[in-house]
Design a protein around this nucleic acid. Structure first.
Lengths: 124, 124
DNA sequence: ATCTCATGTTAGGAAACCTTACATGAGTGG
DNA sequence: CCACTCATGTAAGGTTTCCTAACATGAGAT
């Protein structure tokens, strides 16, 4: 629980998130527009990102590399954040299962980013 | 070793280092002047701090709270960074021993900073 | 009573970031 | 093949954050 506080602590500025993720500012802001991340703001309206945000961005990047579009990614994240249902049946339509399969199948191909997904654990 | 890379990675801007340490920008720059830290610089000359830097700053803060002055703190850090001598005798004058005793004695009193020294490990 | 040290404060300028708006190239569907 | 949409690039104009340099100051030591 206190671990969650750490990961959600807004420590990082645009600059270094761009470096860590190799995304452009434009991309990062676009993903925020689509509510995939919601970085903190300083008093002066500057975005401050948490390590969780960086993880999410790396995930988004992977999904886009796989040819997924915003709409699908949004759904995917929506599912993830759903409270765990005791009845599994009602959260998986065939499309979601397909996406999940894609994701698994792709797990080997990820060799491109400066920081591969999951590697962020190096930082905390 | 790769762990050392993490801790020395320049991730943090002035802003958040001020928050994490509860030091003023003036203080942080002053300590840099005295070569107690040497933050990275962006292309545009902005300071970027590592977690190690933050640790060091918290240490400095403690020492100053104890009434130590820059000169002493500098010596202390110099000793710390000295290669470990096989002959212990030549690194400890009575003054250093005194300082160390002070530090231990003080270990209970530290309750003030937003982040107590050592607690930074929460972040990586 | 003066000096030094650690820090505050102010000024002027540069870098980084903000939003908004328009441009564009790659796919997609009619 | 034409029009659309989507993800991203880019430019403009404005604000915030950070920079250095310089001077101010209060507390302790000499």
């Amino acid at each position: 629980m206190s671990r969650e506080i750490r990961r959600t602590m807004p420590l990082l500025s645009m600059n270094i998130v761009m470096q860590l993720t190799e995304l452009s500012a434009r991309q990062i802001r676009y993903y925020e527009e689509h509510h995939l991340i919601e970085p903190h703001r300083t008093e002066g309206n500057r975005r401050m990102f948490s390590l969780n945000d960086v993880d999410t961005l790396l995930e988004i990047k992977d999904y886009l590399d796989q040819g997924m579009n915003m709409a699908k990614i949004k759904k995917l994240f929506a599912k993830k954040n759903e409270p765990v249902s005791t009845d599994e049946r009602d959260l998986s339509d065939s499309e979601l299962r397909h996406i999940m399969r894609e994701e698994v199948r792709q797990a080997q191909r990820m060799q491109k980013s400066s920081i591969r997904r999951g590697d962020l654990s190096r930082f905390y």
